[in-house]
């Protein structure tokens, strides 16, 4: 599949953003005032930039609102609905933590320390649940596609969720005193990433697709393409039989495997300062981008069989 930068940005950034929102919503850690301001700012920033980026590859972004209508049947529509719901539900909770708690930023205009708002933490929990659901919906956009056997497995939602919650946990780990838990998540993530590649490499053959089943001509012999239907390229080949992206497969896998979990984990363990979380996030994002590039570039669509390609 064609690894469109807008889609890589979308899945990667919104994944980490919603991951951070999950932890903030659950109160791990409980942040207030300016610390909360920067943490929620980062979480909302990543999520929103990711979501906006997803509209960049649309042919008609001006009609994007229509995509909220088919949540009954479409994972892409569900993703849109749930992501907006998560951001809206989380907003009052974030506002409370940033402005209204005792010593909050609202103190600048005398609005801090308002009593009776404790119940807002339940909105945080609900927002966290919706954020998690958003990440699951994002992963299902890909995992539902039988046409891409490498994506069509249960490991994909698990991997996306783990990427999201470990990426989110990274940022606040030194502040929240959750370094050990985060390190464990990062190591599990690294193992699962390898597992995804290993299992994914076998998926196409295991699904039983071949030029013979694609053409239905297997009954009379083995099939090869003699002549392509067109001398130039077309949308299908550009979008779904995009093979150039696989050129640096091995190197990118190595980069992803090291940067996604191992280096950030090492950083968190050795540097017990608040900014270690941000540096670790930077490293993690490099690994995540490499991983997502491969997620798309390595994915083989069955339509390639009609062109003698994978």
């Amino acid at each position: 599949m064609h690894p469109a930068p807008s889609i890589i940005m979308f899945t990667a950034l919104s994944g980490v953003g919603f991951g951070l929102l999950i932890w903030l919503g659950l109160g791990v850690p409980v942040l207030s005032s300016w610390t909360a301001f920067w943490a929620f700012g980062l979480a909302y920033g990543l999520s929103v930039v990711g979501l906006i980026s997803s509209t960049l590859h649309l042919g008609h972004p001006e009609r994007a609102l229509k995509a909220f209508s088919q949540w009954r049947s479409s994972w892409l529509s569900r993703e849109g609905v749930v992501s907006v719901a998560a951001l809206l539900v989380m907003a009052p909770f974030a506002f409370w933590r940033v402005f209204l708690v005792p010593g909050g930023v609202g103190g600048l205009v005398g609005l801090d320390g308002l009593a009776g708002l404790e119940w807002l933490r339940w909105l945080g929990v609900l927002g966290a649940a919706l954020s998690l659901l958003t990440v699951i919906c994002t992963s299902m956009i890909y995992a539902q596609l039988k046409t891409v056997p490498r994506w069509n497995m249960g490991l994909v939602p698990v991997l996306f969720v783990l990427f999201s919650i470990s990426g989110g946990a990274l940022v606040t780990a030194p502040v929240a005193q959750t370094v050990m838990g985060t390190v464990v998540m990062l190591l599990v993530l690294t193992v699962l990433q390898w597992g995804y590649w290993r299992q994914g490499d076998r998926r196409f053959a295991a699904a039983g697709h071949s030029m013979e089943t694609a053409t239905g001509l297997g009954g009379i012999g083995s099939v090869r393409l003699l002549e392509s239907p067109h001398s130039g390229t077309n949308y299908l080949l550009r979008e779904m039989a995009f093979q150039i992206g696989r050129k640096h497969q091995r190197r990118l896998r190595l980069i992803a495997a090291v940067m996604v979990g191992l280096v950030p984990a090492l950083l968190l363990v050795t540097v017990p300062l608040w900014w270690a979380g941000l540096v670790a996030l930077g490293v993690h994002l490099v690994g995540l981008f490499a991983s997502r590039w491969l997620f798309f570039a390595e994915a083989e669509h069955v339509v390639g069989l009609y062109y003698g390609k994978r």
Binding site: M211, T215, L217, I220, G221, S222, V223, R224, L225, L226, E227, S228, P229, H230, Y306, Y307
Partner: peptide
């Protein structure tokens, strides 16, 4: 689109 295949028994 019309593809052309060769089928070898």
């Amino acid at each position: 689109r019309v593809h052309t295949f060769e089928v070898t028994p």
